[in-house]
Each structure stands twice: as C-alpha cells, then as structure tokens.
Design a protein around this nucleic acid. Structure first.
Lengths: 348, 348
DNA sequence: ACGCTTTCCGGAAACGTTTTAGTATGGCAG
DNA sequence: CTGCCATACTAAAACGTTTCCGGAAAGCGT
C-alpha cells in the first residue's frame, strides 16, 4: 500500500463504505466495536490521516487556534521570549482537546487589521488570541462581527465587553510607588513609551493614583516619554538629569530602557541603587543581567498561557461546558523580584 | 449585503457564472477585462475572500509556509527573539508571492516527529522550514518521503542531501580561538551544551581544529559539558576553577551561560577581562548587558530570514524559476562584536 | 456566404471529507 | 404472524472552490 489517496482507499481496502470508516475514526456511536477496531488498525498501518481541507470544508471547523503576534522591530526587542513562553502553557491545555496552536505573525509592513481579516476569511482557525491590543482596536470589531471566539491579550475599549486578559499594571505601579515612598522618596519619575500602546496610559494613570494616595501631587514633568528601547532609556536618563528639581527615583516601563539609563547615569557618575533608586517592569530576559541588578517584576509565562487557553475555551461553545468561567476579564498579577537598583533610601 | 455565503452569492449578485467569477479573481487570461473589473469591485465591496478550505481542497495547495519551532524551556530561554526576528525577513520575501507564514510550535511534551507528521498529513502547508535539527533527524526523512519542499535550519546527516542553512560555527570558533591565541592564550577552555544538539559537536570540533592549526594540542579536560543555561554557566565556572592547570580563557557556546559564569567568577574574586578572557557566542539579547560587556558574535536575524525564504522558494517547483539558487547548503556568517570581557592578554 | 480562429462565458465535474437519510437484519412483544 | 425498535451499515448529498470542456458570438480572410 504505497499511496494513501484518502478515505476512499482505506474503505476499499477494508471493504466497507466510506461513511462507516469516517464514523469509526471520529468515534461516532453507531458503529460496531469490532469494525471500529479494524478501521483504526488499518488507518494506523497505512498511515492515514484525514485531509484537513476536506474535513473543514464539510464541517466548517479546523481544530486550530490562532495566536496573532507582531514581528515589528519593537516587538522583537521587547517581547523576546514572551510568546514562546506563553505557547507552552497554551498548548498544555489545548492539546487536551486535540486542538493545535498556530502562530500567525503579522508582517510588519502590513496593517494588522487587514492581515487578521485575511486570516479570518481563510477560515483556517476556529478561534483567535490577539495580542498587543490598542486602546481602540479594529481587530476586535472584526472578530466580533465575524463571530469568531477570541481572547485579547491586553484590555481595550473596542467592541463592547469582549473577553480579555491583561497584566496588572495598576498593581505593579502601586507596588513600585509604595516601595519607593516607603524608602522616603517623594519625587519619583517614570519613563513611559511615547507611542500609542495602551500600556503606557494605564501605567501612568496608576502611577499617578498611587502617588496621590500617598498625598504626593502628580508632577507631569516627571513623566518622561521616550521610545521603548535602549536609546529611549538613555534619553530618559538625559531628560532626568536636565530637570531643575531632580527626582530621587525612577520607574521604567520597559526593562530594555534600563541599559540605556544605566549608561547615561554612568556618564554622569551616578550609581543606580546608591544615588538614584531604579525599578523596572518585567524581569525577563535582561533585568537581572544588569549590574547592579534591577529591581523589577516577574511572572510565569507558562501560567499566563494556561489562563489564556482556559479563558478562550470558555468562549467557545463547543468547549465551554468544561470551562464555566465567570469572569470574562482577568488581571494577571506579577510578583516583585527585588534587586539592588532601588537600594537608595532617603529614610534615616 | 450582510452575509457573504460564498462565490455563489457573488456570482448571483453580478449575474454571471461562478466559473467566470473564479477566473476573474484568480487573474486567468480568458476573461474580459471589463468583467474582471466588475468582479473585483464587487468582491471588494462585499468583502468576499475565497474560503481556503474549498480552495485548497480543489487545487491541493494552501499558499502557506510553515515554520516549525519548539517551545521547550531551553528553547525559550536561549532562542529568545530569534524566531520573531527571523520571521520579519521571511515574510518580506514570502509576501511578495502572496504566501503566508505560519509558525507551528511543537508542544514540548510531544515528539517533534509525531507533531510534524500530523501537521503534514493535515496538508495545511505547502512547504516547511524546520529548526533545531538534530544530527539524525527523522523529520527530514518524513518530509522527503511526503515530497514536501523544505529547508532545515541546522545541518543534518539525515535524508540524503537536503537543503539546509546553518550558522557558521566553524568560523565563529576559529575567530574566537584566533583572537585568543593572538593575545597569547594557550589554554583555552570551552563550555559546550551537554545535550545532543548538533551545534555542540560542530562547535567543539571546529574549536579543536582551530587549536591544532595553531599547534596547540587539544585537551579534552578543557571541554566543559554543562547545561545551556545560567546554572550551566555557573557550573562551568565551578569546573573551571577546579582544574589543576587553569585555563586563561574560555569560550561560551550560549551567551546565557555568561551570567552564571560571571557570578561564579565573582565569588572567586576573578574579574572577566582582567583575570580571564571570556568570549561568548550570540550577542542578542543579553550579551551586551553584562558588566564587563561580553565579546561575542552578531548577525542580522532579518537577513537570515530573507536567505531562508529565498532558499525555500528555490526548492518549490512553482516558484523555483525566480530563485535559481545553485547552492543548496548555506553557511551563515556572524560578525565579531568586540566587548571588554576578552581584554585580558598574555602578550607583552 | 463560408469556414476559421479568437474571445469570452456557462455548465458541470472534481477535490476528500462528514453527515443525513434510508435500508437490511434480527430480536422481541403483542 | 405482524408490528416495532435497535443496531450497523450503505448510498448519496453537501461543503466552496477551481478547472476542464464545450459553445456562442464576433472578427477576419477568402
């Protein structure tokens, strides 16, 4: 049996109808257990696997979950192992339901909305996970209209109340501010991304609220808008040094900024952790490689992937029974990973 | 026109046959230019995109290229932005041919060979790029037998002479050894991965040959087999310190090892670049974040992606005409990125 | 007017699968 | 013996598209 042409060949080889073969393979009830065994054995022997095109054409389903990611220069530099780490957790859940994960990398010269539209129209996935959602994100309306179950990684105001999971920026900002204030700092700067990413707004808002909770008035001049890169960090250090009334602490939203900041501080003879308290955001993959080590926040990418998968399955009618999630929106916590960079204290 | 059910609706709306609509959309010659314009306009207006299942069922092609990656813990920690970086280059080429890229992440509890078999049987991709090839890799035989065009990222001895691209480990090893020898070093250690990955063997072989070219006899005790992780690097530092006749330089195959090595050296009061010369392998994303900065090697991930895509297209009959590549195997060069960690010199 | 080619389009088959409807068989109660 | 249900199967329709084949209309040289 060199060539497996399809289910027809398999049926002929077994001398039964193709309908029965199909039902046997798909675990349908109305097939003799004896027959099923024979079919399964023959399929295994001949290496038959159902053609996905024919299958999904007929039943309108693909058993594939899509994870849309962007490969822009900035994403590559800042997300790093993020997606790879998350996929581990995703798959550990999805594989239990015989679902496969496909990563859809949006070309960086193409509009993410157009890309997603094309992928959706192709009907290659049953459900989607989209990441890096913007404050207003057309992709969400698209998915809602196309009636494709999805979860957004990152909150958004688009498309009514869709399901999303986001990192606990408020918690992180509050924890960082609390920690710095408890060390006596009053003038705390923050380096935020200058682009339109949602994270920037939320983080700075939370930073502001945390300050005010401590009775510290929010000073807009301490919010330094720079690129989310090493250069941005350098620039942030530069801006910081030019302020009339210098802050004694700074919070960085991207840990990549830290390297640039350290460099600029070094040029000025300022030592992080001794002359200025520095707290970063995400640990991986570079936070702990700096000298002095960066105080920052940590989370389990794998666990986040598990949560994402379970949330997604809860939105898919065919699987929802196993995952009766109440909450449609989840705030994912991060844990403080203390380092040396915020050792500088004003308390006596 | 709320619901687009398919080409049939579109044809009815235009009052022409579905055959003509299909030919118009696919750019076939035998259709009036006037008609084609009308069809295109209507398709755009109604948001019609051909259902991929029906399409690929009929013509046995999907216009999708698969990139198989592994999301094992080790891959996540060491590959980092590697795949995301490469996809940028891949897509810049593929999109010119209206090909889409799909990343197939193999669950880390599943045998890569079984996973690939399933994906291939599904006929969801027209061609494949596989990565992290082993010395003997069953996936290659599988793809050859299934007659699926593919390129392996990493050389292998399986499956006759298939097409592959690999990093220039020989060049890197030679460059590192030459550089260290020129600074007077004679006892040069190497920290290599303890698992079966191809890279380990090739790299150490090249290291050995480079040494012998300089008339230095290869000393197996200087080859330290450790895990490709921070802990591995720490372990390597430990082993190094226990050697009777201590090396004056060390080459690290994974830059992630450097952080652990630095830590162990620091405990022993040894400063990299002053008391011991250290050279790492890949720069991104952590090499330059260390203090003192790590001398290591650098490459353009995007360019590598472009090369991969062009090589793959050359193996696909439908596209080969545009990419008449001669060489089926490519060694991808890396460039030295000097840092401070190998400043230690024995020359007078 | 005729035959020929070219241009354009409609009809229908085909891709591989799942699923619906229908059928033969046998058991069992009436 | 008849009617009825359960079981296990077959036959055929359906999914949406592309492509082969044939044919109508038009152009053109004779």
């Amino acid at each position: 049996m060199p060539q497996m042409k399809g289910i027809r060949q398999l049926a002929k080889h077994l001398d039964i109808s193709i309908g029965t073969v199909s039902r046997a393979l798909n675990g349908r009830p109305d097939v003799n257990e004896e027959t099923r065994k024979r079919v399964l054995a023959a399929a295994e022997e001949l290496g038959y696997v159902a053609n996905q095109s024919g299958r999904s054409l007929r039943q309108g389903t693909t058993n594939v979950i899509g994870l849309m990611i962007e490969s822009s220069k900035e994403t590559v530099e800042n997300s790093d192992n993020f997606f790879l780490g998350v996929t581990g957790g995703l798959q550990s859940v999805l594989s239990r339901h015989k679902l496969d994960l496909l990563m859809l990398p949006c070309p960086n010269d193409e509009d993410p909305h157009e890309y997603l539209k094309r992928m959706v129209a192709r009907r290659i996935v049953d459900a989607m996970i989209i990441s890096a959602t913007q404050r207003v994100d057309k992709r969400i309306d698209l998915l809602v209209k196309a009636k494709i179950p999805f979860v957004a990684l990152g909150r958004s105001t688009s498309g009514g109340n869709h399901t999303w999971i986001d990192l606990d920026f408020e918690g992180v900002a509050a924890c960082a501010v609390d920690r710095l204030v408890s060390k006596g700092h009053r003038r705390i700067a923050i380096a935020a991304p200058s682009n339109d990413i949602n994270l920037g707004y939320i983080f700075v808002d939370a930073y502001r609220q945390s300050l005010e909770r401590h009775g510290i008035t929010y000073d807009p001049s301490l919010v330094i808008r720079v690129k989310s890169s090493e250069q941005g960090g350098y620039q942030a250090g530069h801006e910081l040094l030019r302020l009339d009334s210098k802050p004694t602490a700074i919070i960085l939203i991207y840990e990549l900024m830290a390297i640039g900041l350290y460099r600029r501080l070094n040029e000025a003879g300022i030592v992080p952790g001794r002359d200025l308290a520095v707290i970063g955001f995400r640990e991986e993959p570079r936070g702990k490689f700096l000298q002095p080590s960066l105080t920052c926040f940590r989370m389990s990418l794998r666990d986040l992937g598990v949560e994402l998968a379970e949330t997604l399955l809860a939105t898919m009618p065919a699987y929802a029974e196993h995952y009766p999630k109440g909450a449609r929106n989840t705030i994912w916590p991060l844990e403080l990973a203390p380092g040396e960079s915020d050792a500088f204290s004003l308390s006596t």
